[in-house]
Design a protein around this nucleic acid. Structure first.
Lengths: 225, 225
DNA sequence: AAGACTGTGTAAAGTTTCGGTAAATTGTAT
DNA sequence: ATACAATTTACCGAAACTTTACACAGTCTT
């Protein structure tokens, strides 16, 4: 399921233009021509980012920006008609993430959307410290795995899966839970996928002292013995 | 024990960003989003330097700066949203040591922090000392790179990229992270840009013993073997 | 012990990512 | 303004990885 970008502008023409380019990049687009309605949609559609015109009927962009900011740090790109306005907005420091003057280049808009999402999507990596479990060593920031000092090559999903299990030894995770965490909450595929990666892990980590155990009918856990 | 830099800004996003790069240079980071709290922390945490946003809730940056100055000559770098403001501040002569306009380049911020600390004569943290890794030599001050004593011509981005990787050998960096550090956090472009520069590096540094490795689906790292 | 259900292993199909080349764009110096 | 250098974008084919499919093996229930 693609991420949604909410575009708020009183000119339908602008919305259509933006929609064309944004959808072309694989995002979904929601839109509104009215300030109040926009606030509603922010709550309902849970957009990943809002493109917000300064001048709006209902409630102006500044006010919306301010209100959103009291609630969340949802990324906002402000559109203004005159470049003077940018100084004004920036001066107010109400926490928009970027600014663009009309007429804007749609490609530029898309580039900035991507840049901001790239930044804000950075997964909070809580534990970056190396981790030892029996003869297993995991260094998250190097994405390095060793068993008895011997480096084992793991692929991305294998590593993420092992890390998840190893950070919580003994804890049972359902396949659904593992999909949520390792694959992302919007993963649409089969839970069986997890099984395959567990199989790969077991195969590559034969010599590992903590073992990936199956909890029948429930999921998997890592046991340290 | 590392020196502490106190970062004061009302936007948590900015703080997080600054923290990432400053800590990466071996400093500790304290932070505050509120003016009054900041004054407290200056007393408690005894920072070596303060990065201070002009606009703040609680008490604005100018006032804090003024108060600190009555007590000590703790180095201060002021952040402002508009370049106009700098003239204003400088006019007030309240003795900040440097100024930076938002959006700022995090590398630039770090560079100025180091410059000021160096100037203020305490033995500053990890200096821009030459760096050796296998048969690779990097001298950041001269922006000089040698492999087996043979100088290699690198372009600006190539050098910055290599330096980032070489300062943290073994650590995996996502393209996003590299864009943030080398290109600046408001770079609005493709992540693939990184790939091209990595390709150039590999081509120019065939003989280098540490190698730039691809971590599939994640990013790049420099491995020393 | 049979039947129903859950998990494993293997391989093929599908998808994404990456590296290289070249073209387009931007920046810099003449 | 023009030429040259550096950076960024575009695109394709290859490689790496992921997911699906399916037959078989194991486990639990009655």
């Amino acid at each position: 399921m693609p991420e949604t970008i909410l575009v708020v502008d009183d000119e339908q023409r602008i919305i259509d233009l933006a929609r064309m380019y944004i959808e072309n990049e694989g995002f979904a687009v929601a839109s509104s021509t009215d300030g109040r309605e926009a606030l509603q949609k922010i709550l309902n559609d849970k957009p990943a980012l809002v493109v917000l015109d300064l001048m709006l009927p209902g409630m102006d962009g500044l006010e919306i920006c301010r209100r959103v900011r009291t609630q969340s740090d949802l990324p906002i790109i402000m559109l203004t008609a005159r470049s003077d306005d940018i100084d004004k907005i920036v001066g107010l420091e109400l926490g928009a993430d970027d600014y663009l003057t009309k007429p804007f280049n749609p490609r530029e808009l898309v580039a900035r959307i991507k840049a901001i999402l790239r930044r804000s999507e950075r997964k909070a990596a809580p534990e970056a410290k190396p981790l030892t479990l029996g003869n297993l060593l995991i260094n998250p920031e190097q994405r390095l795995v060793q068993v008895d000092g011997v480096t084992v090559d793991l692929r991305m999903k294998e590593f993420d899966l092992l890390l998840m299990l190893a950070e919580n030894p003994g804890i049972v995770f359902s396949r659904e839970r593992l999909l949520d965490v390792v694959w992302g909450y919007n993963f649409a595929g089969e839970t069986r996928t997890v099984d395959v990666h567990v199989a790969h892990l077991r195969h590559k980590l034969r010599q590992m002292s903590p073992q990936v155990e199956t909890v029948w009918g429930v999921g998997y856990k890592l046991v340290v013995d």
